[in-house]
């Protein structure tokens, strides 16, 4: 009873502060806290935008007072940045594709399995890796895949190898897939839950091969989850810093590593800001492409979905 009285009181406060006439703006109102939080980042971006327009004088290590596009010109004129940027975008695309291909069956089995225990095991396996940070997990892979690592010593018993499996581009992508997989499954699972199993069964009972059913029924219906997962995996892979450092052996940098180098290694926050801002623009643009081409996915509005 106490709860309902309290609710009524709250309802009264709500009615005073937010009469029904304001209903049109309720959506905007609800978004306000999240928008305000992201504003913290926007303030940072504004600082970086300003810093990127001043040039560092390496004789005094002070930035010049004049506004100049020199940092952007320097970036544009250096092939390294384009190579690293291309490597990041290609890498993020491959990682997204592989992660989704791996994550979807996992999410599907987890939702559809009849055994509560199977479901629990799959869920727990998903959550546990979260608790070991990205860095420590990557070091775990170094131990498994290194030249004198676990896998190579197994190969050694068979008289094979040793193979060079780390400190190259594929190992960076592998590390990213492994890191991002749980996120993808968690975003896909609710979408699979929302699919009525009856529809799939109907398709299969009409004689469709399960692969056809998957392609024409299940996947399209799970699209919201797939799009959300694609967006998350793609943007996080594109802007990742740690995996290229640990698994890339120093010669497979992503663009975030260039940001790090500029800020920390050569103490040039102007150049670092310029690279960071270009990265934000490109990542946002590509995210917009994903949203437009694939539809808005889980982020969509009820009106669009139905």
């Amino acid at each position: 009873m106490g709860a309902s009285v309290m609710l009524e009181a709250l309802e009264g406060i709500r009615a005073t502060l937010w009469p029904r006439a304001f209903k049109r703006f309720t959506g905007a109102m609800l978004l306000l806290p999240a928008v305000a939080l992201v504003l913290v980042l926007v303030a940072g971006l504004a600082w970086m935008g300003d810093a990127s327009l001043h040039l560092l004088d390496t004789e005094t290590f002070e930035t010049g007072a004049d506004y100049t596009a020199a940092n952007y010109r320097q970036m544009g004129g250096q092939a390294t940045y384009w190579i690293v940027l291309g490597r990041s975008i290609l890498g993020a695309a491959i990682v997204t594709l592989v992660t989704l291909v791996l994550a979807f069956p996992y999410a599907y089995v987890m939702v559809r399995t009849g055994s509560a225990w199977t479901r629990k095991i799959l869920l727990v396996s998903l959550f546990l890796p979260f608790f070991i940070g990205q860095v420590v997990r990557a070091y775990g892979w170094l131990i498994i895949l290194g030249k004198e690592g676990l896998l190579n010593s197994l190969f050694g018993i068979l008289g094979l190898g040793p193979f060079k499996m780390i400190y190259n581009y594929p190992s960076v992508l592998f590390g990213l897939v492994q890191y991002l997989l749980p996120f993808a499954v968690l975003l896909i699972a609710p979408a699979v839950t929302a699919i009525d199993e009856e529809i799939e069964l109907a398709s299969e009972s009409l004689g469709a091969h399960w692969l056809r059913t998957f392609r024409h029924v299940t996947l399209p219906m799970a699209k919201p989850g797939l799009v959300a997962a694609a967006l998350v995996v793609f943007t996080l892979a594109l802007t990742d810093y740690a995996m290229p450092v640990i698994l890339g052996g120093g010669t497979n940098d992503f663009i975030a590593n260039a940001v790090y180098d500029a800020f920390f290694r050569i103490s040039d926050s102007g150049l670092g800001s310029a690279v960071a801002i270009v990265l934000v623009l490109i990542a946002t643009l590509l995210a917009a492409v994903i949203l437009t081409v694939l539809g808005s996915g889980t982020l969509g509005f009820s009106a669009e979905r139905r």
């Binding site: 959506g27 978004l31 943007t235 594109l238 946002t284 995210a287 437009t292 982020l299």
Partner: peptide, 29 residues
């Protein structure tokens, strides 16, 4: 999910900023 919001696409991209801003940039800011 529930309300029609103006500039929805832009808003989505805005709310995605935490993932598109590299963490080092976010940290420095």
């Amino acid at each position: 999910a529930r309300y029609r919001v103006r500039f929805a696409k832009l808003l989505q991209l805005y709310l995605l900023l935490p993932f598109t801003v590299p963490l080092i940039g976010a940290g420095m800011g």
